[in-house]
Design a binder for these strands. Sequence first.
DNA 1: CAGTAAAACGAACGTTCGTGCTATATACAT
DNA 2: ATGTATATAGCACGAACGTTCGTTTTACTG
Lengths: 235, 235
Amino acid sequence: MTKAQLRKAAKAVAAKGRKAQGERTRKAILETAVHIASAEGLEGLTIGRLALELSMSKSGLFAHFGSKEDLQVATVETARAIFINEVIRPAFETAQGLHRLWKLCDIWLGYVQSGVFRGGCFFAAAAAEFDGRPGPVRDRIADIMKEWLSTLRNTIVEAQNAGQLAKEIDPTQLAFEFNSLELGANWAFQLYGDKGAFTRARDAIRERLSRYATATGAPLLNLARPKSTQARAQS
Amino acid sequence: MTKAQLRKAAKAVAAKGRKAQGERTRKAILETAVHIASAEGLEGLTIGRLALELSMSKSGLFAHFGSKEDLQVATVETARAIFINEVIRPAFETAQGLHRLWKLCDIWLGYVQSGVFRGGCFFAAAAAEFDGRPGPVRDRIADIMKEWLSTLRNTIVEAQNAGQLAKEIDPTQLAFEFNSLELGANWAFQLYGDKGAFTRARDAIRERLSRYATATGAPLLNLARPKSTQARAQS
DNA sequence: CAGTAAAACGAACGTTCGTGCTATATACAT
DNA sequence: ATGTATATAGCACGAACGTTCGTTTTACTG
C-alpha cells in the first residue's frame, strides 16, 4: 500500500514536469484493458494476459501502475471517456429537452448493440461485479453510473421546464424506469443475443414519452421515429 | 475432462444404489456455496475458501464434485431451488391471473430486499458474470432466467384469458418491462443501498397493471396495495 | 461385531496470480 | 552527440488456484 502510493505519487509528479513516451504506451495499455475487462470482467483482466496481448513483459507493463487496483480504476476511467464520446457527446449535439432525452436513450441502446464494448454496457457489467466489494473501484463505478442517471434526470427536468413534458411526472421515477429498461435490454442481449430487446426497450420508452408529452412537446417525437415510418409503410 | 466424467458417472451410479451420509454434507456444502457465490460471484467461489468456511479439507470437499465447473452448476441448481421456494411457490398460492401477476413481482422485489441472497438476485449477478463465458454454467443460468421470464409471461396471458387484462397488450413486451424494472431495482439496491428503488419499481408496475386492467380486473388491484392505504393516510 | 465401502484427510502437483527487485535499453534535453 | 531520466525487460518471490494421489477414518450392512 505504502509502496504503491509512493510510486504513484512519484509518477504523477514526473508526468507533469516531463514529456512522455510512456504516456503513449499507457494509453495503448488502457485501450486494450478496457476491451478485455468488458468481456472478462475487471477481475478477469489479468496483468499477464494483458501483457501477452500487447507483447510486452508483465513487469514493464506493471510499472505504469502502482497496483492492480490502480490499473482497474484507470481502466474504468478510460471506459468513461469512451462512453462520453459515444453516447453523451452525440446526444448533446441535439437541442435540450424532449429530443435530447430520446437521443440519450436511443443512442445508449445503440451503443450496446453496436458492440462499443465486447461485453455490452461496461458499467452494468462492472457494477454487477463490484457491487459487493467495497473500495475505490466500486466507488468510481457507482459515481459514474450516478452521473449517468443524473444526466438522464436533468434532461427530463429540462424537457419539463421547456413545457414539452408534463410537470406532474416525477423525473427521478422516469429516469429510473428508462435506466431499468436499458439495463433490461442489455441483459437480454448479452445473455440471449436477443436484438428484439432493443426494440422493446425503445417502444416502452417512446410510449412513456408520448404519453407524458405536452401539446408543445408531442410534435418533437415524430422526428425521433426513423423506424416507425417504415413500419407504417409495411403494415 | 475424461477423469471428471468417469468419477461423476461412478458417483451417480453409487448414489442411486447406496445410502448416503455424503449426501448430507453435499447439501451443507451447497448451502454455503450459494451464499458465498451470491456475494463474491461464482468464480470468486473458491474451493479453498469454501472448505475453510465448512472446516473441512479441500480434497474432501472436492471429492463431492468432479470439477469446479460441476460445483458451480450444482450451486446454480441449489439457488434455483431456493428461488422457487421463496418466490414462485408463495406467488402460486394465490389464484392465477392479475393477482398472481402482482404477487410475482411484489414478492420478487421482496426477495431481493430481504437478502435471501447476500448479493441480491443470485441470477442477475450470475448472468452478468457468465454472459460472456460459454459453457454449461452459462447455459443453465440462461435457462433458469428464461424460465422465470416465461412464468411472468404465462401469468400475463392467464390474466388476459380471464378477462382481467386488456387483450391488446403484448405479453412478451409487458414481461420484458416488468423484468427490467426488477433488474433496475436490484441494481440500485446493490450499488447504492437505495431502498426507494423498490418503491419506484412497484409504482411503475402497479401503474401499468391498473392502466391495462379491464373492468373485471381493476377491483383485484386494490387488494394488492398494503402500502398505498398507508401512504394515503399519511399524505 | 466384523467386514467393507464410502467419505474425509494431508500432502503435493503444476499453474497462475500480483508484486518486488535489479539491470539494461530507449528516448529526450542540452 | 552525449548524458541522464525514463521506460522496459528479466527473474524471482510467496500465495492461492484447481486437481490428483494414497492413506486413514468413519459409517453402514450382513
